[in-house]
Design a protein around this nucleic acid. Structure first.
Length: 277
DNA sequence: ACCCGTGTTCGCTG
DNA sequence: TCAGCGAACACGGG
């Protein structure tokens, strides 16, 4: 269920665990075939064995992993709804829903875990990620490129649907998902049901700030541990201001109660009292 | 049994 | 070409 902050967290962890390490063995769980297609499990195992981790980057919700062996290989890892990377000792049992196990040369094993199998793991010849259509289509990444309010305002002005689903369009801002969109609009004090083309430049500035602030806050809330716990999982409190808080009083104005509506098939949370229509 | 889900993509319409 | 929509993908958890 990862959005930009969770993927950034995964990038940092993966970098710390794996850069400079060599993959001694790779094993794909049979169910993992959904994640790795069109490559077949045996192909993936063969391609990864013997490679060394050189670099781990992130663009939007995508992890870009560069492996170096004889030449360069890339892996694009998208976590989908339920993907996670975890680290165990090689002697430990695999965590639940492990779909790929990478034994490294330091006695550790990295696991790609994914219960719902919406994640994607693609081999990218030559690690030429920039050539992939799905990477080219992405808008600016808020964390490393910032957000240009004028550009954002111009993009919103071309859309007649509600601003919240529009913010989740990866061509506008790469990495903003369902939670971050709700949170950002709450911070910007704008009703998520507002038509995108009715957002002013001044409001676009607030949205830009809201997106960056919520991303940073979510990142901070992940803390320093090794494991990610998503909301509603045991052990994870809810670090958000409106998401998942239907019926609770607004933490800012104390007047409204948080409402939940469905937009473009996704739940949206907002305060009807302090987010203006 | 039934509903829900922090995501993307495809097929379709206008 | 593009905006917009609904379904599909595959599965666990409540």
């Amino acid at each position: 269920m990862p959005e930009l902050p969770e993927v950034e967290f995964a990038k940092r962890k993966l970098g710390r665990w794996a850069i400079g390490r060599r993959i001694e063995r790779a094993r794909v769980d049979p169910k993992g075939r959904y994640v790795f297609r069109p490559a077949r499990p045996a192909q993936v195992e063969r391609a990864l064995a013997g490679e060394r981790f050189e670099k781990v980057e992130r663009v939007g919700k995508n992890l870009l992993i560069t492996l170096a062996g004889s030449g360069r290989k890339g892996v694009l890892s998208h976590l989908g709804m339920t993907g996670k990377w975890a680290r165990r000792a090689a002697s430990e049992p695999a965590p639940r829903f492990s779909r790929l196990r990478l034994e490294l040369d330091d006695g550790s094993a990295l696991h790609y875990c994914d219960s719902r199998l919406f994640g994607r793991f693609r081999l990218v010849p030559g690690a030429r990620f920039e050539e992939l259509p799905e990477v080219r289509a992405l808008g600016p990444d808020p964390l490393d490129e910032g957000i240009d309010p004028r550009r954002l305002a111009a993009q919103l002005a071309r859309r007649r649907v509600a601003v919240k689903p529009t913010l989740m369009d990866q061509r506008i801002l790469a990495g903003v998902g369902n939670i971050q969109a709700s949170e950002a609009l709450w911070r910007a004090k704008i009703d998520p049901r507002r038509r995108a083309d009715r957002v002013t430049l001044a409001e676009a500035r607030r949205i830009a700030k809201g997106v960056l602030d919520t991303i940073r806050a979510t990142l901070r809330a992940q803390g320093d541990g090794d494991e990610i716990t998503y909301v509603e999982e045991p052990g994870g409190g809810n670090p958000f201001s409106v998401y998942g808080r239907k019926g609770e009083p607004c933490r800012r104005c104390r007047k409204g109660r948080i409402e939940r509506v469905v937009q473009a098939g996704r739940s949206t949370y907002f305060c009807p009292a302090c987010q203006s229509r």
